[in-house]
Design a protein around this nucleic acid. Structure first.
Length: 393
DNA sequence: TCTGGGGTCCTAGGACCC
DNA sequence: TCTGGGGTCCTAGGACCC
């Protein structure tokens, strides 16, 4: 089964406002959860069914959404509350089976095969679960039931909200093949465009294409694409706890910068923020990457692999500065980001790359981390950095 | 008041090694 | 007398997801 929260951010904000005593349920109004336009974050993150009916789509600018839907109300994102609701949802589902794979903040897979002999018919169980989620947590979910994860995921997406759909192997032809090829999970915009050029417009058409025909355009992806169009997926529900492979933070700047020196304070703030997250995970990173987006929205990344993993703010910043310098050109920079990869639990201390002394920044970092935990992340920040707004810790 | 932020995985090319 | 084959690691970019 694939369990998916309907309009997650919007539903959860609706729950939040209702808990705060609001008489209005924003799910029944023309509403979106949107970024802040003043900080150049003005896009739609989630929409109500009403707004959707007016043609509002996720990812579009608030400006464009308002043109489609006059009177549209926008509400800010409340990530800490979303995380709480997410945890409650998964705890509830886990009370029936530990065999769940959390796919994102608002969706998970449940391996029902292993508990079917306890709870019985899957459709009946899904109905009960859906009802219980609504009664206890006050939001609706879609549930997809199928023989594998891919088909369950496809099924949960059929019609919304508050629906249960099945997509058993024998139903693939009838229920999935007529759909537009772009609807297929893992077929994004670019792939759909290429397939349509080849006159492959539906999932069914893709399912009945010889992989060899796709090979020139898709190389090793060819067989995969035909497989998923046939509903073939042998992956299992992986309930092992999630471990990040890399962590990053990025910020859209309040204006474009062409002077790279002026970007350094932002870079330092990012190093501070990401390395704090890294230390909270008790990990070190050995790949440091800087991400830049220019005013034409083109992204560039550069990275460096270190000889030893590190998690100190200063070391990461020193490397990041070098990378930033190497990336310098005439671009007008709109966004800057920092990513740490190749994470390990290795805590072996090395002699700092940039100081000849054996100074131990890790002690300083630890002390600062503790202060931040106690008094809030904004209590202390590096003199050379700028204050970042806390969106997501 | 134009266009977020956080992730994963794959590919292709170059350096380097034997 | 003219140029292999196999392998790893690193980097940059692109595709996908929510």
């Amino acid at each position: 089964m694939h369990i998916d929260v309907n309009n997650a951010f919007l539903s959860w904000s609706a729950v939040y406002y209702n808990l705060k005593g609001s008489k209005v349920d924003i799910r029944t109004t023309y509403a979106v959860i949107g970024g802040d336009e003043k900080t150049r974050n003005g896009i739609v993150l989630a929409k109500s069914m009403y707004a959707k009916k007016k043609g509002v789509v996720t990812g579009e600018t608030l400006y464009s959404a308002r043109k489609k839907c006059p009177g549209l109300k926008t509400y800010p994102m409340n990530y800490p509350f979303y995380q709480k609701m997410s945890n409650k949802l998964f705890s509830l589902i886990k009370s029936y089976s530990p065999d769940i794979e959390i796919a994102s903040i608002d969706e998970c897979y449940l391996d029902y095969t292993k508990v079917k002999n306890i709870y019985g018919d899957e459709l009946e169980f899904a109905k009960k679960l859906q009802k219980e989620i609504y009664e206890k947590l006050k939001f609706t979910v879609n549930i997809g039931i199928a023989n594998n994860k891919l088909c369950a995921k496809m099924a949960s997406d059929f019609t919304k909200p508050n629906k249960i759909h099945t997509l058993y192997n024998y139903e693939i032809k009838e229920k999935m093949w007529p759909l537009d090829v772009g609807e297929l999970f893992m077929v994004g915009k670019k792939t759909a465009e290429k397939l349509k050029i080849m006159n492959i417009n539906t999932i069914g058409k893709l399912a009945n294409t010889e992989p060899i025909r796709l090979y020139p355009m898709f190389k090793n992806q060819a067989k995969f694409l035909v497989d998923i169009a046939n509903g073939i997926d042998n992956s299992s529900v992986d309930s092992s706890s999630y471990e990040a492979k890399g962590i990053s933070n990025e910020i859209t700047l309040e204006k474009d910068y062409s002077n790279y020196k002026e970007l350094e304070p932002f870079l330092l703030a990012l190093c501070d923020k990401v390395s704090l997250r890294l230390r909270k995970l008790n990990k070190s990173a050995s790949v440091i990457a800087v991400i830049l987006k220019d005013n034409t929205f083109k992204r560039r990344t550069h990275q460096k692999k270190l000889d030893y993993p590190t998690n100190t703010t200063d070391e990461i910043f020193e490397v990041a500065k070098i990378i930033l310098k190497e990336m310098q050109n005439d671009d007008e920079i709109r966004l800057i980001g920092l990513r740490l990869d190749d994470l390990s639990v290795c805590n072996i201390r090395q002699i700092s790359l940039f100081n000849n002394s054996l100074n131990d920044d890790s002690k300083l970092d630890k002390t600062i981390d503790k202060l931040k935990e106690k008094y809030g992340t904004n209590i202390l920040f590096k003199a050379g950095s700028v204050k970042l707004k806390n969106k997501k810790e």
